[in-house]
Structures are given as structure tokens and as C-alpha cells.
């Protein structure tokens, strides 16, 4: 198939940037979206132009590095899929494809389609852990049974790959789905319950400091999340946060 691409090009953080149009021919349906981008880049290099920078690594939908906003949706038109697992068979001959970076004040553009998502890391520094030393002197793994339903829910929350699609999709650029997934994973396990209150307070505080918007429950995040993280987690975070605010000593 032949495609017309409108790709966001921006030299660096200070540059204003803009959409640049490229024509790309003979693309096969079995190619992944990023393989299509590879071909575009090979073409640009052979023309002596600078290739398009974009984040990507594992290309199997798990590392969360890839991050494009394709035809108006983070990770493109295929539901439950990261950009690297999106295949060109989802497009038609003659299509125009808009390719933009994730947009949020808290995700500044570094170059072209590459954005800085370190705000997510900082939120996790604020409490995304259980304070247990890695000394190896912990108790036996089976000494605390965990109800399967909670273990499964914790796992579902933990499948978040931290790609930032929730922020990109939200009209308010809110990070609530991400933060709620992290808080939920630990809050649902007996091991994490001990610090659950401080964790919710601290992670939300950091989230606010990073400049994400407020959640208005539009559900766009859930619809675009490649891992299907549920809005139930946001309600849980609200609950955890409010009860922590009311019941902690500080």
C-alpha cells in the first residue's frame, strides 16, 4: 500500500516544530508500524535527511517505550495494542496517517516523537515500592496466603507498562490511571498494605507537582490503555487517598 505520512518533526525541546509530510510506497500489511517507520528512516537517510527519532525498544508490547499518537489515538487505531504491535494491515492504501508525539505539559518533547516521561519515574520514587530490604532474610513466600481474587487484581494493575498512553489520551493530560494502577497493585497485597496510606498520599502529591491535569472520569485512558487497566483502579486510588487523608496522624 501507498501512504501519506504527516509526522511531527521537532529538532529539540526549544524548537517550535511542525508536521512534515512524507510519501511512503509499497508498505506491506504484515509489517509492524515501527517497521514502516524504519523504512521511512532508511528512505530519509538515503536522501541525506535526518531520520525521525522515536522511542522504541522491545517491539513486543511490554517495555512501554514506544509512544506515538497515531491518527488521533495513542498507539493508533488497534485496541489493546502498543505502537510496536500495531500492524499495517489496520491501514488502507492511500491513507493519510498523522503521527504526533504524546502531548502533555508533564511530558515535554525531547526530539521529534520522543518525549520525556521521567515524571512517571519521579512519581514512583515518591512511594512506588514496599520498604523491604533485599537482604534475603524475609519470611517464606507462602507464609502469608493471598486470596486469589486479590492476587489476580493486583496482577491486573501491575500489567501497566508505564507507556503514558493514559496521559496522552486524556483531555486533561491526567496521570490518574497510571498512578492508580501502581497504588492498587500494592494496596491489594498484604505486603503492600502496611505502607498503603503514605504511599497514596505521597504519590498523589508528586503527581500533582509534575503538572498533570485533574481526572474528570471521561474514561479515555481506559479506552486507550494497551494493557486494559481498569477505571476501578482510579476509584480505588480515590478511596485510598481520601481514607489516608482522614485517618493518618499527619
Amino acid at each position: 500500500m501507498d501512504l501519506k505520512l504527516k509526522v511531527w518533526r521537532q529538532k529539540n525541546a526549544e524548537d517550535k516544530g511542525g508536521l512534515v509530510e512524507y510519501q511512503l510506497n509499497d508498505i506491506e500489511g504484515h509489517m509492524s508500524f515501527l517497521e514502516m517507520m524504519d523504512i521511512l528512516n532508511e528512505q530519509l537517510i538515503s536522501e541525506g535527511q535526518e531520520p525521525v527519532s522515536f522511542d522504541h525498544d522491545c517491539r513486543e508490547g511490554i517495555c512501554g517505550a514506544c509512544s506515538m499518537h497515531i491518527n488521533g489515538e495513542p498507539h493508533g487505531p488497534d485496541a489493546g495494542t502498543t505502537t510496536c504491535q500495531l500492524h499495517m494491515r489496520k491501514f488502507n492504501d492511500g491513507d493519510t496517517i498523522f503521527i504526533e508525539p504524546f502531548r502533555a505539559k508533564a511530558f515535554p518533547v525531547i526530539k521529534d516523537l520522543v518525549v520525556d516521561r521521567s515524571a512517571f519515574d519521579r512519581i514512583q520514587h515518591a512511594g512506588g515500592y514496599i520498604s523491604v530490604n533485599t537482604s534475603g532474610n524475609t519470611q517464606d513466600a507462602n507464609s502469608i496466603p493471598v486470596p486469589k481474587v486479590n492476587a489476580d487484581k493486583a496482577f491486573d494493575a501491575a500489567t501497566c507498562i508505564g507507556c503514558g498512553a493514559c496521559v496522552a489520551a486524556c483531555k486533561n493530560a491526567s496521570a490518574m490511571l497510571f498512578v492508580s494502577a501502581k497504588v492498587s497493585q500494592f494496596a491489594l497485597l498484604p505486603q503492600g498494605e502496611v505502607e498503603a496510606k503514605d504511599r497514596a498520599l505521597n504519590m498523589v502529591k508528586q503527581m500533582d507537582a509534575e503538572g498533570f491535569g485533574n481526572c474528570t472520569n471521561t474514561g479515555a485512558c481506559e479506552a486507550e490503555c494497551p494493557k486494559g487497566i481498569s477505571l476501578e483502579n482510579i476509584a480505588r486510588l480515590n478511596r485510598e487517598y481520601l481514607s489516608a487523608s482522614v485517618t493518618t496522624d499527619h
Partner: peptide
Amino acid sequence: VSANIIDQCVAQGVPFARDYGGLL
């Protein structure tokens, strides 16, 4: 040390698969 890894990871909140009795 392999057995210890599992203890350690469970303590960290790694959500390993469990059976209906709540054990790994």
C-alpha cells in the same frame, strides 16, 4: 539462593500466580 529469590520477590509485592488456597 533460588528459593530466597521467591521469598524476596513476594515481600516486594510481585504478584505471582496463586491457587485458590492463596498459595503460590
